[in-house]
C-alpha cells in the first residue's frame, strides 16, 4: 500500500460527504449533467488557484460547495441572497438546539417568531 492509502477516511468531515452526495443526487436526478458539474467545479478550482488559494487540494470540498451554489443559481434554482439567508437560519437553528437533539431548521428562533414553524 502506498502512502495515505490505508485508513484514509473517505470524507474528512460530515459536511464534505453531504455536499458530495448532494451533487451526485442532483446529477442522478438530471438537474445538471456530469459535464456541467465538472465544468462548474473546474472553474471554481481554477479561480481559487488563480487567487493564490491553497496548493494541496485540501480545499476541494469548499470548491464543490461554491460550484454547486453557482450552478444552481445559473439554473435559476437558487439565489445567492436566498442561500445566505437560509444558511444564517441554519446557523441560528444550530445554536438554539439543545445538545443531543437533531438540528432542525424549525429551531431557528427568528423562524419561530415569524410563525414559519409548523
Amino acid at each position: 500500500m502506498s502512502r495515505a492509502e490505508a485508513g484514509d477516511p473517505v470524507f474528512a468531515e460530515p459536511w464534505q460527504a453531504q455536499i458530495f452526495a448532494l451533487a451526485v443526487a442532483l446529477q442522478n436526478r438530471g438537474v445538471f449533467s456530469a459535464d456541467e458539474w465538472a465544468q462548474a467545479l473546474g472553474a471554481e478550482i481554477a479561480g481559487a488557484a488563480a487567487a493564490g488559494g491553497c496548493d494541496d487540494g485540501s480545499d476541494y470540498y469548499e470548491r464543490c460547495c461554491e460550484a454547486l451554489e453557482h450552478l444552481l443559481i445559473a439554473k435559476g434554482l437558487a439565489s445567492h441572497e436566498g442561500v445566505d439567508a437560509l444558511a444564517a437560519s441554519w446557523a441560528r437553528a444550530a445554536e438554539a438546539t439543545p445538545h443531543g437533539q437533531p438540528i432542525l431548521l424549525e429551531n431557528d428562533p427568528e423562524r419561530r417568531r415569524a410563525g414559519q414553524a409548523p
Binding site: W15, C65, L68, A88, A91
Partner: peptide
Amino acid sequence: HDNHFTPIEARVRALESLM
C-alpha cells in the same frame, strides 16, 4: 460543537434543505 455550525456547514445545510 453539536450545536454550532461553521459557515461551510451552514451553507451545505442550506443548499441541501433548499433542494
